[in-house]
């Protein structure tokens, strides 16, 4: 392997350990927040923290930040599709059952 190739190489183990520690810290945070019994805001807080964790995993462990732009757009479209399905379903649920 050439010198140049090793520079473009994957994220090193040290960065992975930092990301892992962040993920554990966020897990501790979400458990603590849940114990505060914030009721209405608890769901939003836990989904927000879960999404932050998922973003860390996708960006670093799945190294999306080093992938070509086409892959990022594809992921965006997949998530957009899921969001639309959720919104359309909830528009039905809220209008007909509330």
């Amino acid at each position: 392997m050439t010198e140049k190739e090793s520079q473009v190489q994957a994220i090193g183990p040290k960065a992975y350990i930092v990301v892992w520690l962040c993920l554990l810290a966020l897990t501790a945070t979400t458990v603590t927040v849940a114990r505060l019994h914030l009721t209405a805001y608890a769901v939003i807080a836990s989904i927000f923290i879960a999404t932050a964790k998922a973003a860390l995993v996708v960006t670093f462990f799945m190294h999306l930040r080093r992938e070509p732009w086409i892959l990022k757009i594809m992921l965006f479209l997949a998530l957009l599709a899921l969001t639309l399905i959720v919104l359309l379903t909830f528009s039905d649920v809220w209008i007909r059952y509330k």
């Binding site: 897990t27 979400t30 458990v31 849940a34 608890a42 769901v43 836990s46 989904i47 923290i49 879960a50 964790k53 998922a54 995993v57 996708v58 462990f61 799945m62």
Partner: peptide, 23 residues
């Protein structure tokens, strides 16, 4: 294989608060 494993991890990241932390 790693991508698959991380995806499975992400699913759990959402399952955990939604089932365990909503008490």
């Amino acid at each position: 294989t790693g991508l698959y494993w991380h995806f499975v991890d992400i699913v759990w990241i959402y399952l955990f608060p939604l089932f365990y932390l909503i008490t």
